[in-house]
Lab assay of single mutants.
Amino acid sequence: MEVRTIKVFTTVDNINLHTQVVDMSMTYGQQFGPTYLDGADVTKIKPHNSHEGKTFYVLPNDDTLRVEAFEYYHTTDPSFLGRYMSALNHTKKWKYPQVNGLTSIKWADNNCYLATALLTLQQIELKFNPPALQDAYYRARAGEAANFCALILAYCNKTVGELGDVRETMSYLFQHANLDSCKRVLNVVCKTCGQQQTTLKGVEAVMYMGTLSYEQFKKGVQIPCTCGKQATKYLVQQESPFVMMSAPPAQYELKHGTFTCASEYTGNYQCGHYKHITSKETLYCIDGALLTKSSEYKGPITDVFYKENSYTTTIK
């Protein structure tokens, strides 16, 4: 009895394709271990004539594949690729409408935090270190965002349907971005203890939790000093293409032309909904596939993004 075979390709990165001759009487799992086709788990399936010449994702289970996976995804987590594939199996079914010149995501599976993050990423200057993220990001900007969303979920250790947080998501993504040249110098002034300067680099240099107003941050924000008295913390120097200011959701007025974009969060910790506000020729609110415009805006804002380049204080 002759062994019926077909020729397929296996890959971990969709760049390096490895030619395989597979036995049609055995499952993919018996031949390769966990195997995925377009995100779908085909591990328990036997090869079919229609699979001839198709590319299958496999887990990096030998040295060659491990090197290829690390170079593309910059992670050695053995569960990463499987999590990416199972997320992709959902995100490829989502709709990605162009809204006001940006790629958004039609609401499904509690994905409003991903839509808000995706919209924000198209408006701030950011370059990702893992080629996987950078490639998928370019495709997302062009309207094909399924891979990018699935990668975000995998890097953030999230599953489809789980509630997510924009600030946490951005923080994970910033860790995989090139923020080497970003720098922030802060000064804390206390009447009792004097003053202390701190220099922050990388992710810490672009994120701040405690106030939404970048102007206020430049002037000074009140913080408790270690001595128990009130101290003032203010920005001395900022070198970065953008800054992200966050605070627990509270009524906040966004003035046209003073910011790049913002995240609105309605609801409580267990259950809520994100919308995205962007400042173009007027203010726009993007909620999944829905767009509304207004000249002014007041609502429960939790993150505001500002364009920056270089700032030095005039406070002496």
Score class of each variant (00 low, 15 high):
Glu2Met: 11
Arg4Met: 15
Arg4Glu: 10
Thr5Pro: 13
Thr5Ile: 09
Ile6Gln: 10
Ile6Ala: 08
Lys7Thr: 13
Val8Ile: 11
Phe9Gly: 06
Phe9Arg: 10
Thr11Gln: 06
Thr11Ala: 06
Val12Ala: 07
His18Gln: 08
Gln20Asn: 15
Asp23Pro: 10
Met24Cys: 15
Met24Leu: 15
Met26Lys: 12
Tyr28Glu: 00
Gly29Phe: 13
Gly29Met: 13
Gln30Arg: 15
Gln31Arg: 13
Gln31Ala: 13
Phe32Gly: 07
Gly33Asn: 05
Pro34Val: 07
Thr35Lys: 06
Thr35Leu: 09
Asp38Val: 12
Ala40Trp: 12
Thr43Leu: 06
Thr43Ile: 05
Lys44Ile: 15
Lys46Trp: 14
Asn49Pro: 14
Ser50Phe: 14
Ser50Gln: 15
His51Arg: 04
Glu52Phe: 11
Lys54Ile: 12
Lys54Gln: 14
Thr55Lys: 09
Phe56Pro: 04
Phe56Leu: 11
Tyr57Phe: 15
Pro60Thr: 06
Pro60Val: 07
Asn61Tyr: 14
Asp62Thr: 12
Asp62Cys: 15
Asp62Phe: 05
Arg66Ser: 09
Ala69Met: 14
Ala69Ser: 10
Phe70Met: 15
Phe70Gly: 10
Thr75Arg: 09
Thr75Asn: 14
Asp77Met: 06
Asp77Ala: 07
Phe80Gln: 04
Phe80Gly: 04
Gly82Cys: 14
Gly82Thr: 11
Ser86Met: 11
Ser86Tyr: 09
Ser86Ala: 15
Ala87Ser: 08
Ala87Tyr: 05
Asn89Trp: 08
Asn89Pro: 07
His90Gln: 11
His90Trp: 11
Thr91Leu: 04
Lys93Asp: 15
Lys93Leu: 09
Trp94Pro: 02
Trp94Cys: 03
Gln98Trp: 05
Val99Cys: 11
Val99Glu: 07
Gly101Lys: 06
Gly101Ser: 07
Thr103Ser: 05
Thr103Gln: 04
Thr103Asn: 04
Ser104Ile: 06
Lys106Gly: 15
Trp107Leu: 03
Ala108Val: 09
Ala108Asp: 09
Asn110Tyr: 02
Asn111Tyr: 02
Tyr113Val: 05
Gln122Lys: 01
Gln122Val: 04
Gln123Val: 06
Gln123Ile: 06
Gln123Arg: 02
Glu125Gln: 13
Glu125Cys: 06
Leu126Trp: 01
Lys127Thr: 13
Asn129Val: 08
Pro130Trp: 02
Pro131Ile: 04
Leu133Trp: 01
Tyr138Asp: 15
Ala140Asp: 02
Ala142Met: 13
Gly143Asp: 03
Glu144Asp: 14
Ala145Asp: 02
Phe148Glu: 00
Leu151Gln: 03
Ile152Ala: 14
Ala154Trp: 03
Tyr155Arg: 01
Thr159Gly: 10
Val160Asp: 01
Val160Arg: 04
Val160Tyr: 01
Gly161Lys: 06
Asp165Ser: 15
Asp165Asn: 13
Val166Glu: 02
Val166Met: 08
Val166Phe: 12
Arg167Ile: 02
Glu168Cys: 07
Glu168Lys: 08
Ser171Phe: 15
Ser171Leu: 09
Ser171Ile: 14
Tyr172Ile: 15
Tyr172Gly: 07
Leu173Arg: 04
His176Leu: 13
Ala177Asp: 00
Asn178Lys: 09
Asp180Asn: 15
Asp180His: 09
Cys182Val: 04
Cys182Tyr: 08
Lys183Cys: 08
Arg184Gln: 07
Val185Asp: 01
Leu186Gly: 05
Leu186Phe: 15
Asn187Cys: 15
Asn187Phe: 06
Val188Ala: 06
Thr192Ser: 12
Cys193Gly: 01
Gln195Arg: 12
Gln196Ser: 14
Gln197Cys: 08
Gln197Thr: 14
Thr199Val: 14
Lys201Ala: 08
Gly202Glu: 05
Glu204Ile: 01
Glu204Leu: 08
Ala205Phe: 02
Met207Cys: 09
Met207Ile: 08
Gly210Cys: 00
Thr211Ser: 12
Thr211His: 12
Leu212Pro: 04
Leu212Lys: 01
Leu212Cys: 08
Ser213Phe: 01
Ser213Met: 03
Ser213Val: 04
Tyr214Cys: 03
Gln216Asp: 12
Phe217Val: 14
Lys218Gln: 06
Gly220Cys: 03
Gln222Asn: 11
Gln222Trp: 06
Gln222Arg: 14
Gln222Leu: 12
Ile223Leu: 09
Cys225Gly: 00
Cys225Ile: 00
Thr226Phe: 09
Cys227Gln: 02
Gly228Lys: 03
Lys229Ser: 15
Gln230His: 08
Thr232Ala: 06
Thr232Asp: 05
Lys233Gly: 11
Tyr234Gly: 01
Val236Ser: 06
Gln237Ser: 14
Gln238Pro: 01
Gln238Glu: 00
Gln238Met: 01
Gln238His: 00
Glu239Trp: 06
Glu239Phe: 09
Pro241Cys: 07
Val243Gly: 00
Val243Pro: 00
Met244Ile: 05
Met245Phe: 15
Ser246Gln: 00
Ser246Lys: 00
Ala247Lys: 05
Pro248Arg: 13
Pro248Ser: 14
Pro248Thr: 08
Gln251Glu: 15
Tyr252Asp: 00
Tyr252Ala: 11
Leu254Cys: 00
His256Ser: 12
His256Ala: 13
Gly257Ser: 08
Thr258Arg: 09
Phe259Val: 03
Thr260Ala: 13
Thr260Cys: 15
Cys261Gln: 01
Cys261His: 00
Cys261Phe: 00
Ala262Asp: 01
Glu264Arg: 02
Glu264Asp: 06
Glu264Lys: 03
Glu264Phe: 00
Tyr265Phe: 15
Asn268Arg: 12
Tyr269Phe: 12
Tyr269Asp: 15
Tyr269Asn: 15
Gln270Pro: 06
Gln270Arg: 08
Cys271Gln: 10
His273Arg: 00
His273Gln: 00
His273Trp: 01
Tyr274Trp: 01
Tyr274Met: 06
Lys275Thr: 12
Ile277Ala: 00
Lys280Gln: 15
Lys280Leu: 14
Lys280Asn: 15
Glu281Ile: 03
Thr282Leu: 11
Leu283Trp: 01
Tyr284Val: 13
Cys285Tyr: 05
Cys285His: 09
Ile286Lys: 00
Gly288Gln: 00
Gly288Arg: 01
Gly288His: 04
Ala289Gly: 12
Ala289Cys: 07
Ala289Ile: 10
Thr292Ala: 13
Lys293Gly: 09
Ser294Asp: 07
Ser294Thr: 14
Ser295Gln: 15
Glu296His: 15
Lys298Cys: 12
Gly299Leu: 00
Pro300Ile: 14
Pro300Gly: 05
Pro300Leu: 13
Ile301Thr: 01
Thr302Val: 06
Thr302Pro: 01
Thr302Met: 00
Thr302Tyr: 00
Asp303Gly: 00
Tyr306Lys: 05
Lys307Leu: 12
Glu308Ser: 09
Glu308Pro: 13
Glu308Ile: 14
Glu308Asn: 14
Asn309Glu: 07
Asn309Gly: 13
Ser310Thr: 15
Tyr311Ser: 08
Thr314Lys: 15
